[in-house]
Structure formats: C-alpha cells, structure tokens
Amino acid sequence: MKKNFRGLFFTPYVLWLAMFVIAPVALIFYYSFFDIHHNFTLANYQEFFTSGTYLTMTANSVLYAFLITLFAILISYPMALVISKLKHRDLWILLVILPTWINLLLKAYAFIGLLSHDGLVNELFQFFGLPIQHMLFTDASFILVAAYIQIPFMILPIYNSLTDISNSYIRASRDLGATKWQTLTKVIIPMTLPGIKSGIQIVFIPSLSLFMLSRLIGGNKVITLGTAVEEHFLTTMNWGMGSTIGVVLIISMVIVMLLTNTKRKRRRA
C-alpha cells in the first residue's frame, strides 16, 4: 500500500496512543513529584515510604489481593477441570461468562442485601441454629465479594489452557502407569500453568484497586491502594499523593506482569 495511505490509519491510532496512553501515564509520574501547593518535591515518596499508614496499607492491599486471588484459584481450578470434561462444555462455560456481563456494582449491591443483618445468609445461619453474624463491612466480606466477582475471570483462562491440552498426553501418562492424581499433578497442572498465570494477572491487579467494593462492602474499614487513590483524587484533592500511590500501583502491576509473563519466552524456545 502507498505510504500516505498507510499514514491514514497510523495517524488516528498513534494519536490515541500518545494522548490516552502515554500522556496520562507520564502525567501521573509528573504529578507524583508535586505537593498540594504545586511545588516540586520528593516529599510524597518520602511520606509514602516512611509513614507507617501507607506501608501497612500497601501490605494490607497486597494481602487482600493475594487472598482474593488464592481463593479464586482454589475454587476455579476444579471448576474449570470439571467443565472441560463435560459433554456440552461450551454451554457450561457460557454460564460461567454470563455473570460477568452483569454490572459489577449490581453484584456488589446484591451482597449488601445478602449479607445484611436479616439477609439470606443470616437467615440460613439461624436455620442451622447459628448466631446472627455481622458480616457487612468486614474484611472477610470484602474478600468474599471480590473473589465472587473475580472467579469467572479466573475460570476462563484456566479452562482455555485445559482445553488446549491434547488427549494424547493424558493417555500417554496413563499408559505409563500414572495414577489419576499423578496425571493431574505431574501433567495437567504443569501444562495449565500459563492459564493460571494469566488468571493471576487478570485477577490480582484489579483486586489491588477495587475501591468501590471496599467502600460498599468493606465499609470504610478496608482501605486498599485503590481506595487511597480515589480518596486523594476526589475527596482530599491531594493529587500529588494520589499520583504517588498510583505510581506504586503501576510499579506493582509491572512486577506482577513480569512474574507471571512466561508466554514470550516459551514462544521463542
């Protein structure tokens, strides 16, 4: 194709890249060096890395995200495994996808009702003779709801990598005398590691920043990096500090990506 013709496609897209990908990220880095009166300073970083509140918040945030991811894997892996063996697996996986098309806020809202003082869960507890629990606005409920929302996103990549495994591997391992358990742990799980890793990527990073969930379900007790960014940007208007936390979030995102990115190496090998 002619050169100017190619430029025609290039321009809008590259313009978009420059304006909405590169510029905003650059601006976040830039703002992180300014204080609330717009003076250049490193104080934001200093405050972040010396004050106990920010460090515990980061640690908590990572811990929450870790637990959410862990529960999601523990529930999703067997789920994906069973679905991949079903007859109409496409239909079943569709049923896994369907809840992801429902607005996240509505799902969170449903849990406000479910977990409330006289909600369904407490009614069940009463039915089994257990005392009524205050579940709303606790760490546990936040993790529960976040895991609920993330599970489909964990099932899908694992399911995809499971269906990619050729039957001959399973048959070979059986012919060579492996038990079902050995086939699972020595063949299937290692081969689905890429799926698990991309699942971790998809679930862990957003879990660091689910501020709407921590507000709605965690009350104001659960404070994550995302909540802090939201608060600094929209409530206290301290954009410098907000950006600094944003930069920390970006860096942790890059770390997670690096830790879970094996695809490229594999392809080259």
Binding site: I28, L208, L225, F233
Partner: peptide, 11 residues
C-alpha cells in the same frame, strides 16, 4: 491491564 483507578486518575 491497568487498574481502573489508574486509568481514571490519569485521565
């Protein structure tokens, strides 16, 4: 892959 908060704040 960016968290929504980062996209929102940077925009």
């Amino acid at each position: 892959v960016s968290p929504d908060v980062i996209i929102g704040a940077s925009f």
